[in-house]
């Protein structure tokens, strides 16, 4: 019984991390139509940044925020100066982001070597709380809490603020949005930077339990992809549901069919593609 409960808690925690990763991916993919193949690299590079900050003795949350900020700058620069020139051209965008993914992977290998890094969980978040006779590891619960807070904040931003309305307008009809005075290109840079920051932030807070190692980037990228295909691109709710679904499948799959755990992750994606290609919460795009 307690095994299943542990698995469930782990699943929810992984789901929370996946949401942070795929929310940005989903926005970039759904709103800007950019296939950002370096999103997993943002996650990994962010995690490495965090590991280094922690090694300097910086507070855990401060490290996560600093790493997110650094990645926002990097992502923003790449979008502003390179991706921007390729607007609407899928193949060049793919090559550019893929190229950066390889560059980042190799630089990480050079700087942080091939050995895995696993920072210790911050002391005030170690241990477990007892609820109704069952133990829950605090850190995992905190991850879920952070993910939920960010999910609500993103939802409020996109659906209820002036900024969100401008973003939605830019996505629906960029030329008209420009005509009414919305600076669409700045908005897109902002979204890209935000997505990069979220991925890096997730990388840092996930580091104590996923650890950071070469290849993490291309392990996370397909997960973000599956989540977005499952939930529907551009849909935050879809990303949330998809993330928790994948979180559960990953942990339970690994416990029950260790050899095939990775493959099982893709099954719901295949089902959704066959039955509902726009994703569970996606809109039909003409």
């Amino acid at each position: 019984m307690s095994l299943w409960l542990t698995l469930a808690v782990n699943s929810i925690a992984l789901g929370g991390l996946l949401f942070l990763l795929s929310a940005g991916f989903s926005l970039i993919f759904g709103l800007m139509r950019i296939p950002n193949l370096m999103h997993g690299s943002f996650f990994m590079l962010g995690a490495y940044f965090g590991v280094s900050f922690l090694a300097f003795g910086i507070n855990f949350w401060l490290a996560a925020l600093a790493s997110g900020a650094a990645m926002a700058v990097i992502g923003g620069l790449i979008e502003r100066f390179l991706l921007r020139r390729l607007e609407g051209q899928i193949l060049p965008q793919v090559l550019l982001t893929l190229g950066f993914a390889f560059i980042i992977a190799d630089i990480c290998l050079m700087v942080w070597t091939g050995d895995p890094w696993q920072p210790t969980t911050p002391t005030h978040l170690q241990g477990a709380v007892q609820v109704a006779g069952l133990f829950f590891p605090i850190f995992r619960l905190v991850i879920v809490g952070v993910a939920v807070v960010i999910a609500i904040a993103l939802w409020l931003m996109v659906d209820w603020t002036r900024l969100g309305a401008m973003i939605r307008a830019g996505v629906d009809d960029a030329p008209i949005a420009r005509v009414v005075g919305i600076k669409v290109s700045q908005l897109f840079t902002l979204i890209f930077a935000l997505g990069a920051a979220l991925a890096a932030f997730a990388g840092v807070i996930g580091a104590p339990y996923l650890s950071v190692y070469p290849g993490l980037d291309f392990e996370m990228l397909p997960l973000a992809l599956i989540v977005v295909i499952l939930g529907g691109s551009g849909s935050l709710l879809g990303a949330l549901v998809g993330s928790f679904l994948i979180g559960f499948l990953y942990n339970f799959g690994q416990a029950m069919f260790p050899d095939l755990a990775y493959v099982i992750l893709f099954l719901p994606m295949l089902l959704v593609l066959v039955l509902r290609p726009q994703g569970l919460f996606g809109k039909v795009v003409s």
Binding site: F29, V94, F266
Partner: peptide, 24 residues
């Protein structure tokens, strides 16, 4: 089921399945 970016993303995921089988 898709073209353009969708096609690319799905083929990427499918390729990763084969990698998953080969590796794991």
């Amino acid at each position: 089921r898709s073209t353009g970016i969708g096609f690319l993303m799905i083929t990427l995921a499918l390729g990763q399945i084969v990698w998953g089988i080969a590796y794991r």
